[in-house]
Simulated assay, not measured.
Amino acid sequence: MSKLKIAIQKAGRLNEESIELLKNCGIRIENGKDQLKVSVSNFPIEILYLRNGDIPQYLEDGVVDVAIVGENLLIEKQKDITIVERLGFSPCRVSLAIPKSVQDESLVYFQNKRIATSYPNTVRTFLKKNNLEAEIHVISGSVEIAPNIGLADGICDIVSSGSTLFKNGLKETQVLLKSEAVLAKSKLLTPEKEEILKRLTFRIQTVLNAKNTQYILMNIPTNKIAEISNVLPVLKSPTVLPLAKEGWSSLHSVIKEDEFWEVIEQLKILGAEDILIVPINKIVR
C-alpha cells in the first residue's frame, strides 16, 4: 500500500505544532529526533522533516505529497500548489518595518528606498500594486539588523509578537499579508494517495472543530429551556435531560471558549445553576 509523504518544518514552532496536530489526530510518531524521515506504524503516512524554504519546491515537484507549511511561504515561492485546509496555528504577518527614529510611517517613505527582506517576490508584488519603486536587498539570515548597519532604510519580514523588531530598534508600519499554517498538497497525487489524504483531512477537521470549544452542562428551570437555548450558540440544538427535582432539567451544549464570558451572565440571569465547563478533544461532524 502507498504511503502519503508529508513534509513538516525540520525545527521551530511550526515543527512542534505540526507534530502536536498529527498526534491529536491519533497518528503515532514513534521517534523522529535527529531523523529526516520517519515512518508511522498506525496510519499510511511517512513524515519528512525538511528545511522550510525547500518545502514548496518539493511539493510542486511531487517529491512530497502534502505539507504543513506557512501560507506566507507558499505566496512568496509562487508555486503551483493547492491549499487543502487552513490549520489556525502559527499566525504571523509579513510586514514592512522602519527605524523607530523615522517619523514618516506612510507608504511613501519607501519610494526609492532600500528594503532588506527574505520575501522579495512578496515585496515586489506589494510595491507594484502601490506604484512604488524601491531597491530590494535579499537576505536569508537576520533581516532586522540591516537598517542598523546601513544596508537598508527598512525591512520586510514575518512578524508574530513584534518583540524582535522592538529589540532591534524597529517599528512595524505596513502589513503586506496575514498568514497561518496550512495543509497544502502537490498536484501530482495519485488517486490512492488522494484517498489517504481524504482520511487525514477528516481527522484534522475533527481536531480543528474541537479547538477553542468547551462542553457546557448546567441545571436550569424547565420553563426556561427555550430562552436559554436561544442564548447558547450550539451545534444544532442542546441536549435536555429531566432531573429528579421537579421543574428542573439538565441542559448540555457546546460553546466557544471566547464566547463563554459573554454568555455566562445571561445564563445566570435566566436561572442556570451548577454550570460546568469541560474541555473537548474531538468533534466529528
Rank of each mutant, 00 (worst) to 15 (best):
D258S: 07
I6T: 08
I55L: 03
L183E: 03
P191V: 07
L59K: 08
S95L: 11
I255N: 02
I216A: 09
G88M: 03
P233D: 10
K113E: 02
G32P: 00
L127T: 03
I158W: 10
A244Q: 12
K10N: 10
I83W: 07
L59R: 03
V123Q: 05
G12K: 12
I47T: 03
E105L: 02
N31T: 10
A184C: 05
N15R: 13
C25S: 13
V102M: 09
A134N: 02
I220Q: 10
D104M: 11
R28W: 05
S186R: 11
E273V: 04
Q78D: 15
D54M: 06
E227G: 00
S229T: 15
S163H: 12
V69I: 15
N230K: 15
D65S: 03
Q35L: 15
L127C: 06
S39W: 06
S142W: 00
K5H: 05
E192T: 06
F110R: 01
K10I: 07
C156K: 08
K178N: 13
L188E: 10
K256W: 13
R203C: 11
L251S: 04
V207C: 06
E192H: 05
N230D: 11
I27L: 12
S237M: 07
L74S: 05
I155F: 11
V108P: 00
S250K: 15
P147F: 13
K282T: 08
I283G: 01
H137N: 03
D80A: 13
E133Y: 12
I75P: 00
L74Y: 02
P191R: 12
K268Q: 12
E262C: 00
M1Y: 10
N223W: 01
T122W: 10
V240I: 14
L235H: 04
R13P: 00
R285A: 08
I136K: 04
R124L: 12
K256E: 15
S140L: 01
E227W: 04
S249F: 04
V69R: 04
Y58S: 08
E85W: 06
F43V: 09
D61K: 12
S41P: 00
V102N: 07
A67I: 01
